[in-house]
């Protein structure tokens, strides 16, 4: 749902960096992240890539080593209270005392938000079949996740940030959770930023994808553009052209490639047609071009990045010797 204020970002970071040790490696490394207002943003990356650290900085829970971020038009580190009013946060696990009853936890959250809508929260709890008298520690994982989402929506925030929300949920709980999130996007036109390992979900839900790897933004694009513009080329080559392919030929749009027997498999982003021509020019006997899922693209971008790193290291090693 595009809003009137098109071109504006609900969440924006500039050179966001976090080091936990003074001279240690950066966990988040100069991250430029832009979440368009009213969009669903899928934040993806391997375990330890820096997703949760980024989200904790956005929520004002961690102080960046350098760089900055804005939520709406508020800096969460300068004006933490104001920032918290405009955003709902679902952490990767519910943070509450196990002995607390649901009603008590709801009251606790309500006290922190001046714009708390008790009636709406009551309705959501009822629809989710959550008993307010239940102790938080006794809730199933799925119910706890739903409760966490309801608590994040209690003050009707403009932005919703979800950190691995469906991790460890059974399929039914996951369905119900995602239905609730999508419903909230449809009805309120909220901006949603969601980190997830479930790339099939992200592919269906997200307008924009951000891929973080080793603390850096490796790729940030509209989902549609990314899926339409990234292709896998499978070419069967003869023995002579195979050795040429392995050594020299590298289409400019190459993301990752692999040789198996006489088959050369290339993942290319952008100028697909040009890459096909380059492969054809090597004397390929057959060429197939395939669409890819987000899952395929994610793997190949990360692998390609790792391969590129190796080459850089090797070049540096040669330069040193």
């Amino acid at each position: 749902m595009s809003s009137d204020s098109a071109g504006e970002f609900a969440i924006e970071t500039l050179g966001l960096t976090k080091r936990f040790k003074r001279h240690g490696a950066a966990v988040v490394d100069g991250l430029d992240l832009r979440v368009p207002r009213g969009s669903v943003y899928g934040f993806i990356g391997l375990n330890g890539a820096g997703k949760s650290t980024t989200i904790r900085m956005l929520m004002g829970l961690l102080r960046p080593t350098s760089g900055g971020c804005q939520l709406g038009s508020v800096d969460p580190h300068r004006e933490p209270v104001l920032a918290r009013r405009g955003v709902g946060y679902v952490p990767d696990r519910i943070t509450a005392y196990a002995w607390m009853r649901v009603s008590k936890l709801v009251g606790f959250c309500a006290a922190m938000q001046p714009r708390w809508d008790s009636a709406a929260v009551g309705q959501m709890l009822q629809r989710a079949r959550i008993d307010p008298a239940q102790r938080v520690g006794k809730l199933s994982k799925g119910t706890a996740a739903k409760l966490s989402l309801i608590l994040a929506l209690g003050h009707d925030p403009e932005i919703l940030i979800l950190d691995e929300p469906t991790d460890g949920l059974d399929p039914i709980a996951r369905d119900e959770f995602l239905e609730h999130v999508i419903g909230s996007v449809c009805d309120r036109g909220r901006t949603v930023m969601m980190s997830s390992h479930s790339l099939a979900d992200v592919q269906k839900m997200a307008d924009v994808i951000g891929l973080i790897h080793e603390g850096k933004m490796l790729l940030q694009a509209r989902t549609e553009e990314l899926l339409a513009g990234t292709k896998r080329i499978r070419a069967v080559l003869d023995d002579v052209s195979l050795s040429t392919a392995a050594s020299a030929a590298r289409p400019s749009a190459l993301v990752w490639s692999r040789i198996e027997g006489r088959q050369w498999t290339l993942t290319v982003r952008g100028s697909t047609g040009e890459s096909v021509e380059q492969v054809r020019a090597l004397g390929a006997k057959s060429i197939e071009v395939q669409d890819m899922t987000l899952d395929d693209i994610f793997r190949d971008v990360v692998r390609g990045h790792a391969a590129g790193h190796l080459e850089t290291h090797r070049r540096e090693a040669i330069a040193c010797s």
Binding site: L178, E179, I182, V185, C186, K204, A206, D207
Partner: peptide, 15 residues
């Protein structure tokens, strides 16, 4: 409706 389809299939309403 768009909402019904979006929530049932977990697909972005824009899609």
């Amino acid at each position: 409706s768009i909402r019904t389809q979006a929530t049932a299939l977990h697909i972005n309403p824009n899609t």
